[in-house]
Amino acid sequence: MSWDKHGKEDELLTWKDVMEVERYVYTVGPDSEAFLRGLREGKILGRKCPRCGRVYVPPRLYCEDCFLENGEYVEVKEPYLDSFTTIYFDNREKRLDEPITVGLVRFKEATGGLLAIVQGIPEIGKKVEILEYSIPLRVRA
């Protein structure tokens, strides 16, 4: 029927439907549980690979290179800003009341990092102070 297509608006139909379950309940796994418990106590935990010594933040069950189970949990310190961005409009292109600055906070000698809402003047590599231990973190640059 390549040769007899029609294009009138009322002849072309669409069908509305969804592809949703009511909700998802994700388990977070043993390592994220340890992390979230630490977060409540104001601690940022990482987990160390016994072979290469890399510390993963947030902690991970396994090392992505050595592929072995990670060992001890360690508390990581000295957060700094790896990168940042400021958001002016939301997903639907509606202007936000207040622009939000989001950053990726990494920790000294650790792999990985956490998303954070940033106050103050952001700068790449700048040390930050954690104001609130939550997801996302709240930090002051």
């Binding site: 796994g29 069950l61 290179d65």
Partner: peptide
Amino acid sequence: RMLETPQELAWEASRKALDEAGLELR
């Protein structure tokens, strides 16, 4: 129902397969 995340389940199976093959991820 498992406690582990999909990534962790995948790792567990992959690790065992590598062990049986005598290989490392690299």
